Computed example of a mutant assay.
Amino acid sequence: MSRHSRASSAGCRFPAGPRERGDTVPIINVNMLPGRTQDQKRDLVRELTDAFVRTCGSKTENVRVVITETPGEHWGIGGILVSDRD
């Protein structure tokens, strides 16, 4: 392990220095196709936050989750636009 980072028991890495484990401010980015309800997105944000806190040890209030909904005409899978798939 380098002198510039340390690992938690769960395997997450964060910068060395004066910050303590719970002081990190992680950002979780989610890219998905549109169509989920507000309740589903709310549940997703809560579940991702809880999972991050449980495995990496940040404080709940420090975890950021950004959801980006990308339309099918802007998303390709296997060389085909999602909007062109059956």
Rank of each mutant, 00 (worst) to 15 (best):
M1W: 09
M1L: 09
S2K: 05
R3M: 12
R3S: 14
H4P: 09
S5E: 08
S5W: 05
R6E: 07
R6L: 10
R6D: 06
R6C: 05
R6I: 11
R6N: 10
A7G: 10
S8D: 10
S8N: 15
S9R: 15
S9A: 15
A10Y: 12
G11E: 03
G11T: 03
C12G: 13
R13D: 05
R13V: 13
R13S: 13
F14H: 12
F14G: 11
F14L: 11
P15N: 04
A16E: 12
G17C: 06
G17P: 08
P18N: 05
R19Q: 13
E20R: 15
E20T: 14
E20D: 12
E20L: 11
R21I: 12
G22I: 12
G22E: 14
D23C: 03
D23I: 04
V25W: 06
V25Q: 08
P26N: 07
P26M: 04
I27D: 08
I27F: 07
I27C: 09
I28W: 01
I28D: 00
N29W: 04
N29S: 15
M32P: 05
M32Q: 14
L33C: 09
P34R: 15
P34L: 08
P34Q: 08
P34T: 12
G35H: 05
G35T: 12
R36T: 01
T37I: 00
D39I: 06
Q40K: 11
K41F: 01
K41S: 01
R42F: 06
R42D: 10
D43P: 06
D43E: 13
L44A: 06
L44N: 03
V45Y: 00
R46A: 12
R46N: 11
E47G: 10
E47V: 11
E47K: 13
L48A: 04
L48W: 01
L48D: 00
L48G: 02
T49M: 05
D50C: 02
D50I: 05
F52T: 04
F52S: 01
F52K: 00
V53S: 07
V53F: 01
V53I: 12
V53T: 15
R54A: 13
R54M: 02
T55M: 09
T55I: 09
T55E: 11
G57L: 03
G57Y: 05
S58A: 15
K59S: 15
T60F: 05
T60W: 02
E61C: 07
V63M: 01
V63G: 00
V63I: 01
R64M: 09
V65I: 10
V65R: 03
V65M: 02
V66T: 12
I67G: 00
I67P: 02
T68R: 14
T68Q: 14
T68F: 00
T68L: 06
E69G: 11
E69N: 11
T70P: 02
T70G: 03
G72V: 05
E73S: 13
G76C: 05
I77M: 10
I77S: 09
G78A: 08
I80V: 15
I80F: 02
S83L: 04
S83D: 07
D84I: 04
R85S: 12
R85C: 05
D86E: 13
D86H: 09
D86R: 15
D86T: 15
